[in-house]
């Protein structure tokens, strides 16, 4: 006789044992519902900026207007769900503050994502910005961490021209830039390797005094990067939660007139996140209770 046909204890214990044996596809369905219902209902929660989001905001905010900020798009569409909201907010923040923005990418598709951000964020909310003067797109350069190492000694060794082929020497925004240390702030929006870790290892390691760095990162690699904060990184945005907090700080200080959600994607995605987390916590508690209840029962979890 199959174990499911055996006599299980009645009451709460029996219920818990049955829950411990539930087909995992019901859990997938529950997760799907926990995400889709809040999403369709437009559920949102107020965000309270944490220490790291505030530090990141302050790092960009305290650099004087007109400073040169290098933003490296070190991610691709696979991690864009987590990183695009913070990248958008950072770009809007830098442009609003009046920084001169230099964009680059260590990932091939990062260049396209940066181009999209220039079109949808930079030129949409700051149409007065002039290419070559207020911003420039250097594009993707192959070589992974080798590119950072090259830029630590000479930016021109890594990039001789911008993405459109204009020599760097002819761009006002790049005037006086010799090494990566000549940027007042470096930002890496990082989805993996090469990314934040390599910026710290190869640029901060080469010029710790001249290199000021903040990063936005995925949840998966955040625990590896946390030791670098705050000594080797001035600020760090962790996953969608960090993006939501930072978005709130940025749009509070630099509101946009447009009634669209390009600068509130992080907050929008935190509603489903909250409900799904509650479900997962509940399932973890239930799973442990089922394991305890199943002790001593044939077929129960041990």
């Amino acid at each position: 006789m199959h174990e499911r046909h055996e006599q299980l204890p009645t009451g709460l214990r029996g219920f818990l044992i049955r829950m411990g044996r539930i087909d995992r596809r019901w859990i997938y369905l529950a997760v799907a519902i926990s995400i889709s219902v809040p999403m369709l209902a437009g559920l949102r929660f107020p965000e309270v900026p944490g220490r790291m989001a505030t530090a990141t905001f302050d790092a960009i905010e305290t650099v004087p207007a007109g400073s040169r900020v290098l933003i490296s798009y070190d991610f691709d569409p696979a991690s864009a769900a987590e990183l695009e909201p913070m990248a958008n907010a950072m770009l809007h923040h830098c442009a609003s503050k009046g920084h001169r923005i230099v964009l680059m990418a260590l990932w091939p598709l990062g260049k396209q994502l940066a181009d999209d951000a220039v079109r949808d964020i930079l030129l949409e909310f700051h149409p007065e910005k002039v290419e070559g003067v207020d911003y420039v797109q250097l594009g993707f350069k192959t070589g992974n961490e080798g590119v950072i190492k090259l830029m630590s000694t000479a930016v021109a060794e890594a990039y001789s021209a911008d993405a459109k082929g204009t020599p760097l020497a002819g761009l006002p925004i790049m005037e006086g830039v010799r090494t990566v240390g000549d940027f007042d702030l470096v930002v890496s929006v990082s989805g993996g390797t090469p990314g934040s870790k390599e910026w710290v290892q190869y640029a901060d390691g080469a010029m710790p005094e001249a290199f000021t760095f903040v990063t936005g990162t995925t949840g998966v690699q955040a625990s590896q990067l946390l030791p670098y904060y705050p000594k080797q990184m001035e600020g760090m945005l962790i996953a969608i939660k960090g993006a939501a907090e930072y978005e709130m700080l940025v749009t509070s200080k630099y509101p946009v007139d447009h009634a669209d959600d390009r600068l509130s994607l992080g907050r929008k995605r935190m509603g489903p996140q909250f409900v799904a987390h509650l479900l997962i916590i509940g399932l973890i508690v239930l799973g442990n209770a089922a394991m305890i209840a199943g002790r001593g029962v044939k077929g129960g979890r041990r």
């Binding site: 991690s79 769900a81 949840g219 998966v220 625990s223 987390h277």
Partner: peptide
């Protein structure tokens, strides 16, 4: 505690990816 934090952050990342796909579908 470190592994728990790493797990929590990973869950957050994966839920975000799923939410983005659902957002695309919906």
């Amino acid at each position: 505690i470190t592994f728990g934090a790493a797990f929590g952050l990973t869950v957050m990342g994966r839920i975000t990816l799923l939410a983005e796909r659902f957002s695309f579908l919906f």
